[in-house]
Amino acid sequence: MLYRRKTYTIEPAMYETFTHFFHTYLLPNQLTHGAQLVGRWVNEEQTEIMAMWSYDNRAHYETVNIGIRASAMHAEAQNYRKSLAELFISSNEDFFSSTGDYGQSRQILAVSGYIVNEEGHVLLVRNNHRNDTYEMPGGRLELGETLKEAVKREVLEETGIHAEIGDMTGVYQNITSGIICMVFRGSVISGVPAAQPPETIDAQFVDFDKEQVEEWLKRPQFASRVNDARNNESIAYESYEVRPYRLIERS
């Protein structure tokens, strides 16, 4: 994990205004693009506010940052700042890596969609930060979402496709990163697949048989999800480690 500490120096009289700015613009934009808020603190004098964010790695941080700066919410935030005399005096940031796990482990809940068109072709994406393989569209669950709502949103955000979501096909536990991913079948309602920069660099419907799955999905943890969605009537469960990949359990 990569951690980013962002510190703002403010006038005490601007504390409530800055807090409103943070919760209205900074927080939702970061979460939408994949960052996680570790915590936010203020000193007793209310002259310094510090927020700590977490990312999967440096490449993930760069992707999140590009997405935020290209977003409409970022433009709104800049306009809000310009409307005020001085929202904050100065800011700075620095980066940290963890030296160990000293607290309770936190699991991250994610979703993915096995989305097919009328011809039965499967919707796949190639992500900017994981461009060695194709995979099914998906991402982290956001606060207040149902699982199926999250699949619909991630599919739309990564491919431009509106989809109807059906049954769950499997649960997959990445022990290394603490991510639990739930996969759902779905079908296209409307739209044409297209890359959605900066997150995805390709999105397309692919026609392939069982022997060709690993030609597209080059990481075994992604290939097994497609095979399960195609073949299993019951819900599959799989746990594994990565770097290097090692299957721990499957049923």
Rank of each mutant, 00 (worst) to 15 (best):
L2T: 01
R5V: 10
R5P: 03
R5H: 07
Y8Q: 01
Y8S: 03
I10T: 01
E11T: 11
P12K: 08
M14Y: 15
Y15T: 03
E16W: 12
T17S: 10
T19Q: 12
T19S: 14
F22R: 00
T24W: 15
T24D: 11
Y25S: 02
L27Q: 09
N29H: 12
N29M: 15
H33I: 01
H33M: 04
H33N: 12
G34P: 08
Q36K: 11
L37K: 04
V38Q: 03
G39C: 12
V42L: 08
E44V: 01
Q46V: 06
Q46E: 11
E48N: 05
E48K: 11
M50E: 08
W53D: 00
Y55A: 03
T63K: 07
N65R: 09
N65D: 11
I66G: 00
S71Q: 07
A72D: 14
Q78V: 13
K82I: 10
A85G: 08
E86F: 05
S91T: 11
N92I: 05
E93V: 03
D94R: 07
F96W: 14
F96K: 02
F96S: 02
S97G: 12
S97T: 12
S98I: 05
G100P: 13
D101E: 12
G103D: 10
G103T: 10
G103Q: 13
S105E: 15
I108Q: 08
I108F: 15
S112A: 13
Y114S: 00
I115R: 00
V116D: 00
E118W: 12
E119N: 14
H121G: 03
L123P: 01
L124S: 00
L124H: 00
V125N: 01
H129G: 02
H129V: 03
R130S: 03
D132F: 15
T133H: 11
G138A: 14
G138Q: 09
G139C: 09
R140V: 08
L143T: 09
L143I: 13
G144V: 02
T146C: 13
L156E: 04
I161Y: 04
I161V: 12
H162M: 09
E164Q: 10
D167T: 12
M168Y: 10
M168T: 02
T169S: 12
Q173P: 05
Q173H: 15
I175S: 07
S177C: 08
V183K: 02
R185I: 02
R185F: 09
G186V: 02
V192P: 05
A194P: 06
A194V: 03
A195P: 07
P197R: 10
P198G: 03
E199Y: 04
I201Q: 06
D202A: 14
V206L: 09
D207N: 13
D209A: 06
K210H: 10
K210R: 08
E211N: 09
Q212S: 11
E215I: 09
E215L: 14
L217V: 06
K218G: 04
P220R: 01
Q221E: 10
R225I: 13
R225W: 07
N227G: 04
N231Q: 13
E233M: 14
E233H: 13
A236D: 06
S239F: 15
P244M: 06
L247I: 06
R250L: 07
R250F: 06
